[in-house]
Nucleic acid binder design. Sequence first.
DNA 1: TATAAGATTTACT
DNA 2: GTAAATCTTATAT
Length: 204
Amino acid sequence: MTEKKYLSGEFYLREDLITISKDLLGKYLFTEFNGELTGGMIIETEAYRGPEDQASHAFGNRRTKRNESMYHEGGICYIYLCYGLHALFNVVTNHKDIPHAALIRALKPTEGIDYMLKRRKRDSLKELTSGPGTLTQALGIHLTDNGTSLKSPQIWLEDRGIRVTEDDIIASPRVGVDYAGEHAKLPWRFRLTKAKITELNLIK
DNA sequence: TATAAGATTTACT
DNA sequence: GTAAATCTTATAT
């Protein structure tokens, strides 16, 4: 087994969730269950700032058994079930009792593609990890992995030296926010530009 | 205690 | 394009 280049603990403890969400782009998410290494590069994230973000489960510091993970110190994952069907994977950030999290919305598959296709029962790369619910399925992430450290042997994040600048990032705030003011519902969504993804594809 | 709505995906018409 | 699958939390009786 080779050395894993874990993201440092400090990465998750910074206070600016937006910066962290952007920094997550170009990083790698891997899982290894049953000796099968699967994962890919993060190409889309969405920031959920607990208390301020009405779309967050932790809006107004709501605290339930389910979202307890988000109040944990940064560096673990928050996995919850959406619509009773899909496990969505979030990176928990900031300090204890501050419910900030970044949802991983899409990956570019790089490792264990064959195995991921098998898990998804698909044969097209396009739909393999195209959404927040599908990427967890492809990586074999289960609800019971909620709260797992991101430096664990099964689930972890890596920095492979991909350089992402502001120009490579598209930020798309929720529509209709223009007049709603600063405290409106603002799920900050970030993704890599098509050009950047193509560029990285070429490098491989 | 019961009902409604939700950070989605897939299959069928 | 529309609808179904299916579980947790919030709001109300």
